[in-house]
Computed example of a mutant assay.
Amino acid sequence: MSSVRLVDVRDTALSLDEVFEAVRDPAAGGVALFVGTVRDHDDGRDVAALQYSAHPSAVQQLREVAERVAHGEDVVAVAAVHRVGDLAIGDLAVVVAVSAAHRAEAFAAGRRLIDELKAEVPVWKHQTFGAGDATWVGAC
């Protein structure tokens, strides 16, 4: 079985259970799970609406990031799912998980996974603020 168990970019609600189950393994002594949620503010301003969009290559690029992380020391399994479309405050925007032989390796690999996802995967956030103005985050 591949160490990369789940990779997706989707326009439907994300499931913590799905991502956690994807990385569960008898060889894993630890699972690190990160959940990114839509917050009601950004940089001191009220967020009224939020939309994520992705480049068509986003799933492949996410898979490449996951593969690199999966080759880390003592990593057993990796999963990552990002949401696109219109999201409400409190919605899950991204869920990643890494299982590893030990907790330290799970935490380190989980942090690497979310950090590299945010830096490399072409997913962009469009925020509309309470005053009606809007901005793109992560777009070049």
Rank of each mutant, 00 (worst) to 15 (best):
V4N: 03
R5K: 15
R5A: 08
R5E: 04
V7G: 00
V9K: 12
V9E: 02
R10A: 09
R10V: 13
D11K: 10
T12W: 06
T12D: 11
T12P: 03
T12Q: 10
T12G: 12
L14M: 08
S15V: 12
S15E: 08
L16K: 12
D17K: 15
E18R: 14
E18M: 06
E18Y: 01
V19K: 09
F20S: 13
A22M: 08
V23C: 06
D25H: 13
D25C: 08
P26H: 09
A27M: 05
A27F: 00
A28F: 02
A28T: 04
G30L: 10
G30D: 08
V31S: 06
A32S: 15
A32K: 12
L33I: 15
G36K: 14
G36R: 14
V38N: 08
V38S: 09
R39C: 09
R39E: 07
D42M: 07
D43L: 07
D43E: 13
G44R: 08
R45S: 01
D46C: 01
D46I: 13
D46H: 08
A48G: 02
Q51R: 15
Q51A: 14
A54P: 03
H55L: 08
P56T: 07
S57D: 09
S57T: 11
S57G: 13
S57I: 11
A58V: 05
Q60T: 05
Q61F: 01
Q61R: 15
L62A: 05
R63K: 12
R63M: 04
E64H: 01
E64D: 07
V65G: 01
V65E: 01
V65M: 06
A66Q: 00
R68S: 07
V69C: 02
V69N: 00
H71W: 09
G72Y: 09
E73F: 05
E73K: 15
D74F: 08
V75I: 07
V76Y: 01
V76G: 07
A77I: 00
V78T: 04
V78D: 00
A80E: 03
H82R: 12
H82Q: 11
V84C: 06
V84W: 05
V84F: 04
L87A: 11
G90Y: 08
D91T: 11
L92Q: 13
L92G: 01
V95Q: 07
V96W: 03
V98H: 05
S99A: 12
S99I: 10
A101L: 11
A101F: 00
H102Y: 03
R103T: 00
R103Q: 07
A104R: 14
A104E: 07
E105C: 02
A106Y: 04
A106W: 01
F107Y: 14
A109H: 04
A109D: 02
A109F: 02
G110H: 02
G110D: 02
R111G: 04
R112A: 13
L113I: 00
L113M: 06
L113C: 01
I114A: 11
I114L: 10
D115G: 06
E116A: 09
E116G: 01
E116C: 07
K118V: 05
K118Y: 02
E120F: 09
E120I: 11
V121Q: 07
K125T: 06
T128Y: 00
T128K: 14
G130L: 14
G130R: 15
G130W: 15
G130Y: 13
A131W: 04
A131R: 15
A131Q: 11
G132H: 12
D133S: 13
W136V: 06
W136K: 14
V137E: 04
G138T: 05
G138I: 12
G138P: 03
C140Q: 10
